[in-house]
């Protein structure tokens, strides 16, 4: 029941950190000179993206461990983190779009980073489509682990290819300059908060998956 305690601790930690993070973003961080208040989305956007990346990394590692150890606990970990990652990736796309509208005057921009997140988003939606299509518990784990690995190693290639693609069709807009020290600190705090949130959501989903599995087993025992 160590996970339970960790989840509680993280929950209370977030209860403090989340409001503080929003306070810092909206009240403490200075308004950016050129972009104005909209720039504040940036703190959330980057933090969410880092959270998503952390979660997908966890899916990748858990998938390898599953294929190696053949223990379903690793599959629960892989799917729990893929879920967290998918949620965050969705929010990254939404915040990116909200940001692009006032700054670049478009809802969507084919920025290499956004594009990479979008393609990742597709890959992990596919991951869950596949999981939904396989009834056998073990087979489901095995096949989705293959996607968890293949999808992840695609990230650097996609990132590089889209960047190169964009360098031929240059973007008309560029991001604003550097951050001042206060902005940097707020950014750092926001990043930390969202990484804690990632771990919290992951553990929460992971525990749920374990409970579901145990429930199935108990059901079996009463049947037998």
């Amino acid at each position: 029941m160590k996970t339970n305690r960790t989840i509680s601790i993280l929950f209370f930690l977030l209860l403090v950190m989340m409001p503080l993070d929003f306070y810092l973003i909206f009240k403490v961080a200075p308004t950016e000179r050129i972009m104005g208040d909209v720039q504040r989305i940036f703190y959330l956007h980057v933090s969410l993206a880092s959270g998503a990346f952390l979660a997908f990394t966890c899916t990748f590692v858990s998938s390898i461990l599953f294929l190696w150890k053949k223990n379903l606990i690793w599959d629960s970990a892989a799917s729990a983190s893929a879920e967290t990652g998918l949620l965050f990736a969705t929010l990254v796309l939404i915040t990116g779009s909200l940001w692009a509208r006032p700054i670049w005057n478009v809802w969507w921009t084919w920025d290499p980073r956004l594009l990479t997140v979008l393609i990742l988003w597709f890959i992990y939606v596919g991951y869950f489509l596949l999981r939904g299509g396989i009834a056998d518990r073990f087979k489901k784990a095995q096949y989705s682990a293959v996607i968890g690995i293949i999808g992840y190693i695609d990230i650097p290639v996609i990132r590089y290819a889209t960047k190169w693609w964009k360098s031929i069709h240059p973007l008309l807009t560029r991001e604003g300059g550097g951050l001042n020290p206060v902005m940097k600190n707020v950014m750092f705090f926001s990043l930390t908060t969202f990484l804690v949130l990632t771990v919290f959501l992951f553990l929460f989903r992971f525990r749920l998956a374990r409970i579901e599995e145990r429930l199935q087993k108990l059901k079996k025992l009463t049947e037998d």
């Binding site: 056998d136 059901k219 079996k220």
Partner: peptide
């Protein structure tokens, strides 16, 4: 052997 909700062998 466990399928989704069915125990095939035990």
């Amino acid at each position: 052997k466990q399928y989704h909700a069915k125990t095939a062998l035990s």
